[in-house]
């Protein structure tokens, strides 16, 4: 079966500097994969290039999603096809109500899937339901998007958006950074609850601790812009114990 996400020989430049250098990665539908790597290895670049951010130039290789080459698609087109990126640094949008924003997003996505748009009542009940699951302060959904949120609240807001938008592929870019242990648990539970045969996750992280809570099917090690090693979830534990340098040395 074709994997949901299939990246082969991907080279990406940012401001003229090559960050990804022939990256290969496959994530089958229904699986959760982790990408681990040291600072500067290209983790965030990978996340952004999958989402289609401008300024990340693909100089070689291809990104297939659901069998389709999506390398040239606009970010919103990929989003509507079910690609979701939980940002490492969620952006503040002053004055735009969190609920309003999310409703605009979900209806934009539904419109492109020929589904009827949700009205305010249906949407609010969906929101309330998700908010409860994530132990999210209801006050936050009425505030402007991420404005004045703590680091942990911003990350939880990303997961809230994910649970509302119900993507097919969710890319979590260092979602664990800046989270205390309670918030980490809540975020992980939110993700675990969404795991299904119809959905894949790509969990990008520096540290192994998140993977105690979200146990991946596969772990990939990213170093110098390439996947240098892949394995089961025990690989993460080994990396934690040995450090990236040694793991890489073993592979080399």
């Amino acid at each position: 079966m074709t994997p949901l996400l299939e990246i082969s020989g991907l080279h990406v430049e940012v401001e003229g500097r090559e960050i990804l250098r022939g990256l290969d990665l496959e994530v089958p539908l229904g699986e959760t994969h982790a990408v681990m790597g040291p600072n500067g290895s290209g983790k965030s670049t990978l996340a952004h290039v999958i989402a289609g951010r401008e300024g990340y130039e693909i100089t070689g290789g291809v990104i297939r999603y659901g069998g389709e080459d999506v390398s040239e698609l606009e970010p919103e087109e990929r989003a509507r096809k079910g690609v979701f990126l939980a940002f490492q640094y969620p952006v503040e949008i002053p004055g735009v109500n969190n609920t309003y924003f999310l409703k605009a997003a979900i209806n934009e996505i539904r419109k492109h899937r020929d589904q009827p748009e949700l009205d305010a009542v249906d949407f609010l009940s969906l929101m309330r339901d998700r908010v409860k699951l994530l132990d999210f302060d209801e006050d936050l959904i009425r505030r402007p998007v991420n404005e004045g949120f703590s680091g942990g609240e911003k990350k939880r807001n990303e997961i809230l958006q994910m649970t509302v938008l119900e993507p097919t592929l969710a890319v979590l870019d260092e979602t664990d950074s800046g989270l205390d242990i309670d918030a980490l648990r809540i975020v992980a539970e939110g993700v675990n609850r969404m795991r299904s045969p119809e959905r894949s996750f790509l969990v990008i992280t520096h540290y192994q601790r998140l993977l105690n809570h979200i146990v991946p099917d596969r772990v990939h090690v990213l170093q110098d812009g390439r996947i240098v090693e892949s394995g089961g979830s025990d690989l993460a534990l080994r990396l934690e114990a040995e450090g990236y340098t040694k793991a890489a040395a073993v592979t080399a």
Binding site: P75, E76, I93, A105, I106, E108, L165
Partner: peptide
């Protein structure tokens, strides 16, 4: 910022719509 626009677009929102969303938020 490009970051605000990208954030909106990643959620499925058109760039034109994203700009007006941001502008209206500013003027709220």
């Amino acid at each position: 910022g490009e970051d605000q626009l990208f954030y909106c677009r990643q959620r499925g929102i058109d760039p034109e719509e994203a700009v007006s969303l941001i502008v209206n938020g500013f003027a709220r």
